[in-house]
Amino acid sequence: MRKVIYTGLIIALCWFAEDCARAAELRVPQNAVAGQPLSIGTSGSGTLYLVGPGQVIKKEFKSGGSVDIKGEELRSAGRWIAVVRGDSNRSQVFWVKPGKPGKLNFLARPSRVPVARPNVISGVTFIFDQYQNLILDPTPVNFNLSVGGAGTTKTVTSREGVAWIDSASAPKAGAAQFVASVDDTSVARVVQQVAADPCERSFRMHVAGHTAQNIIVETDPIRDCSGNPVPDGTIVTFIQTDKTGKSTVDARIKKDTARAELPASDNATITMAAGVVLGNELHVGGR
């Protein structure tokens, strides 16, 4: 009986040893990083397949030892399967982590926004390494929003690959530079901050001149109530009423003012409007 037990133990030991020996045929790394070289331990000869989330790498090996994978070959982060086909068939799962931040996807919204509005601008940044792997580790992201050099910076640490902020628009109109950056990687977007409607108290016109048949009226510089010039191209409607009827000109603001030529009249009333905002009234001619 003792002999039988002894023989059984010997067999079990050999089996375990054989298994250990086989296990040594495929050694996968524990801390692989995308973009960095990798070494896979093998023995004997055969073919090594590395099946990753976005690629498959195939390597032939003959004398055992380790199979080297170059950094630029290992591009995908995530769950990989290493399979050896040859003297023996083995497979194992290993993980590859993303590399350093190398690319940002920055979604800045909206592209145009009225001035001085709270929480109207949003910036969302997804952080990737140079091989487009989402970096899930917390990473500080700097958001900078500035118009004409003056602006604000805020640092937000990403959670599960994404960092976001919302921000008020500045009181000053203009093309705001909205920049997201991580280390030396940055992406810029433009958020156009535009003036609001004309301010009624400063929306005034005057007679700027006469020609043989026309009277020329022109507005003072048209600004919103924060002092920003109302964007060029905004329609200002001039309406002249006299005994011959009504004459209208839909003029466009150019360089802060709008100007119109209306028929000369010996007794006319001229009004103007931009959207729902009314300007002053002029009387021209007799009376």
Binding site: Y49, V51, I81, V83, R85, N89, S91, L107, R109, P110, S122, V124, F126, R159, E160, G161, V162, W164, D166
Partner: peptide, 30 residues
Amino acid sequence: IFYSPDGAAIELKDTASIETQVLDGSTVIH
């Protein structure tokens, strides 16, 4: 876990139960 303010992007965290078989031709190698 994240839905962007403009509603254009959403991030999901997924715990998936997956059985994976890698085949070389018709032979299952993993």
